[in-house]
Amino acid sequence: MAVAAICACAVACGGWIGNFAQVLNPPVRPAGLEAHETSAGASLLGQFRASASAWLYLHTDLYLHNGVEMRPLSDAEKLAGRHGVGAADDGHEQLADENNLVTVVPGKERDFRGVFGDLERATAAYKKMEGHKHNEPENTLPLFRLMTLIDPQFVPGWTMGATIIARDDARTGEALSYLKQGLRENPDSVEILSQLGYYDITRWKRLDEGAEWMERARAFGYDRFKFLDESELDALRSVYRWLGLCYRDMAQFDKLRSALSEGARLFPDDVIIARLLNPPPIILSDSAKKAWTARIEKAAGSQIR
């Protein structure tokens, strides 16, 4: 509850001292020094907000697993050939990759602690998770709203929250609104922009509007390519792929070549971009087309380091 109080105070401070909130959470991140780099108070509050939102994000996993704590396998465990509990058996596989996860409390077969292990399995929130089922992901939505309220710059809170909302096709509009709210706080986020485009393309088949979002994501991503983190790079990679597909279906081949050439330069190892950029000529036979595609994939594959 005390943590909740501090959360609440942090949020209340953000709204109460308007100017302070603007300094802490500017709509656009300045290229130079930020408030938290120059002001100790802002730094502390900023750090707290970031930590609280990250903590809440981790908590969503506990929600999904009804309190059963999971952890990734260590490198040593992977080398020893140990496997994770595997994907959930309830159609929620897209929410998280659980192939390398195991329960934090070990199963009896891997626990040397004897009676202490038995007691821990009886007192902790523990159950065998092979073929497990998740709680309804919608139950975690309030957590996503809280984490983005505390730290609006926490992009995974916006993107994963939207993914959960959009699991129901009928709520795609709500997911888009949620993402647009996130975009107001993070106007240069490649991930949010690409997800907006994704829903326009795949759910509402609005290729032109989807391509607009993707183009915005492409422009921001290209400008900051060297500074993108892993998840942003993944988002940018898919931006080029979707642009290729959109322009192909809209028969805008100049734009297609421009986008895909740029994508191929930035991601030379990407097989899909390479294939979209070099489709087999239609005069070829089926077997020749296959050989063509295989050569393209081989060439792109050789770029993987």
Binding site: M1, A2, V3, A4, A5, I6, C7, A8, C9, V11, A12, L56, H59, L62, Y63, N139, L141, P142, L143, L146, L149
Partner: peptide, 26 residues
């Protein structure tokens, strides 16, 4: 007293759907 005050502060934001989270915190 902190617990009571903080729960009041949390109430300002509404806890609809956050019952488990609140229980966990408590």
């Amino acid at each position: 007293f902190l617990i009571l005050v903080s729960s009041g502060a949390l109430g300002l934001f509404g806890i609809g759907g956050l019952e488990i989270f609140v229980k966990d915190l408590a």
